[in-house]
Design a protein around this nucleic acid. Structure first.
Lengths: 334, 334
DNA sequence: CTGAAAGCGCTAACAG
DNA sequence: CTGTTAGCGCTTTCAG
């Protein structure tokens, strides 16, 4: 391992000068600089970043905590984070909690031990108190999720108005018996998506039949099963708003099996715009979150905090889009 | 920032003792140990891992270099890597090359600068010479891919025999005009999958019609487009072996649009068993790679190298499975 | 513009 | 079983 002192010796300068050439080249006389650069080259010197980090007390690394890697929505965000991070010379550590709160706690130690300069969380299942304390002492941003009342920098969409938009679309197409297959209500986003459904219905003077609201698990199978339940009703719904695309696909599968044609006999809207929603047959009408942008922005907010120019801890809400494809039939008429 | 010396002072011992309590508790008298632990607790001391890393010259971090994060096959492997890594107290850094060789080179510096203890590569597009040199000086394993002739530790499946198995299945179902939509031939895996197709055909005395082999791009659209070409032939094929699932889905979409029924009028086999292939209608018959296991094994091989007990640099080839679903019709009869 | 020197916080011989 | 001590390799004052 060739080290800085070797370079210094070869170039007949002090290590301080070598260090300067590396970090502030303009402060070194050209002649000396060239000498040093030549020595670096000759020796194929690579600085030991660990030592630098210890000295400077920063790692240029951030931690991304995901509940589940295999989710393409999360992945889109990670892609954005990674892009913005490497643009700023930051590396990203990946932490998978597998939906276990305990793993969240374990990952937090990386921050406390100064192994990363900051952290981006995809969901905050841990105790509020601990989270708050964490945010006060370290750069943290929450993405995809947000916590009411707490002023934690976060980036998300407005799940309520997005869902409202989705349901409103169904209503505009003339549907009145609209069912909702929600996500598990323990997630804030599931509650919000339900609220949006509710608001759109009430706003159009449609009453909400509690039979028409079924709690799913965000999985294909749960969408399929809940749809079967709905189809068994005396007056089944003519349209479904599913809280994510996987469940929407399950819904469509169940409908197809019962001989129903989507969209002619049943209209379906999903949520997330996962990559397969355009490939699925029929292609899914769904709400698209600006995932890449959310990732970039999250990283930028984090950098702001790390660099200390955090104008103020802020919460961003980005626009979502209703992507109209085939699963609801004719375009909006209103 | 409370440091080790603070703990030492409070507990009335030397820093050496504190260090021992942390790393080799059994070598410290219980009484002293408890005193130290209490001090650690009282001060909420968190060791500065950076300093430890510098001193021990190891990071407990490995780097995973992926060509493209948004690929669920890669993701399955990453999941396995991550699981095995965290079981061994290793962290994983994520590097996305976006399919740019230059980014590969950039990421390699992390290894050279001792920022990670080892590296798992998903594809090796860089120059052979550089790769070889890298492997000689650092722990590296190649996964999903392998390089003929070079003895680089790697974990992969046998693409040739897997494809042979897929095509043999179609032949067993009575098909003789079988087309292949390959991946870009610049990838070794594409070539191998083609070879498997060729071998199965020749083995069954079926001649290969070069018109029946079309090079795709591993994308849904390319599968769709190449299928349209095939359908325009005077004697179109009755079965398709696509080099990945996305293309297989494109194939099916094109077939459906032309009024063909899959599997009745056309049998299709894919490759990869991405999660969506079971949801797709018709559910895809495809080759499944043991991705999670590949990830685990890759990580284990890497750890072996890092820890120096690398019995020998070895290349592992895991078994793949033909998953029979709906897209080929009736079960194998042979 | 450059060099000397003092650490960053921890670990690991080596003594005792 | 515990303390002393000498660094890991780099950065950064402070002088010159």
């Amino acid at each position: 391992m060739v080290k800085m002192s070797d370079v210094a010796k070869l170039a007949n300068v002090s290590t301080a000068t070598v260090s300067r050439v590396l970090r502030f080249p303009e402060t070194v006389k050209e002649e000396t600089r060239l000498k040093v650069l030549k020595a670096i080259d000759d020796l194929e010197y690579q600085p030991n970043i660990l030592a630098r980090q210890l000295r400077r007390n920063e790692t240029n690394t951030i931690l991304v905590v995901v509940p589940n890697i295999m989710n393409t929505v999360f992945l889109g965000i990670i892609e954005g984070i990674e892009a913005e991070a490497s643009k700023n010379n930051y590396k990203v550590l990946l932490g998978n909690t597998n939906n276990e709160v305990d793993n969240e706690y374990g990952l937090i130690d990386l921050l406390k031990q100064k192994q990363t300069d900051g952290m981006i969380l995809f969901s905050a299942r841990m105790e509020r108190k601990r989270l708050l304390e964490l945010c006060e002492n370290h750069p943290v941003v929450l993405t995809m999720d947000y916590i009411d009342g707490l002023k934690i920098p976060s980036v998300s969409i407005d799940n309520i108005s997005s869902s409202r938009k989705a349901v409103q679309h169904l209503i505009s197409l003339g549907h009145t018996r609209i069912a909702h297959i929600s996500g598990p209500f323990k997630y804030a986003s599931s509650k919000d998506r339900y609220k949006g459904y509710e608001q759109a219905m009430l706003h159009n003077d449609l009453k909400i039949d509690s039979m028409l609201v079924q709690e799913g698990l965000f999985t294909f199978e749960s969408g399929y099963n809940q749809m079967l339940k709905l189809l068994a009703m005396e007056h089944p719904p003519t349209a479904i708003f599913a809280a994510n695309d996987e469940m929407a696909m399950g819904v469509i599968k169940a409908a197809k099996e019962r001989g129903l044609n989507v969209p002619n006999d049943l209209a379906v809207v999903g949520f997330d715009n996962i990559s397969f929603s355009s490939i699925f047959d029929p292609a899914l009408t769904t709400i698209a979150q600006p995932v890449y942008k959310m990732g970039e922005l999250s990283m930028r907010l984090l950098l702001d905090q790390i660099r200390g120019n955090s104008q103020m801890k802020s919460q961003y809400i980005l626009e979502s889009d209703l992507v109209i494809r085939e699963s609801c039939g004719g375009r909006e008429t209103s």
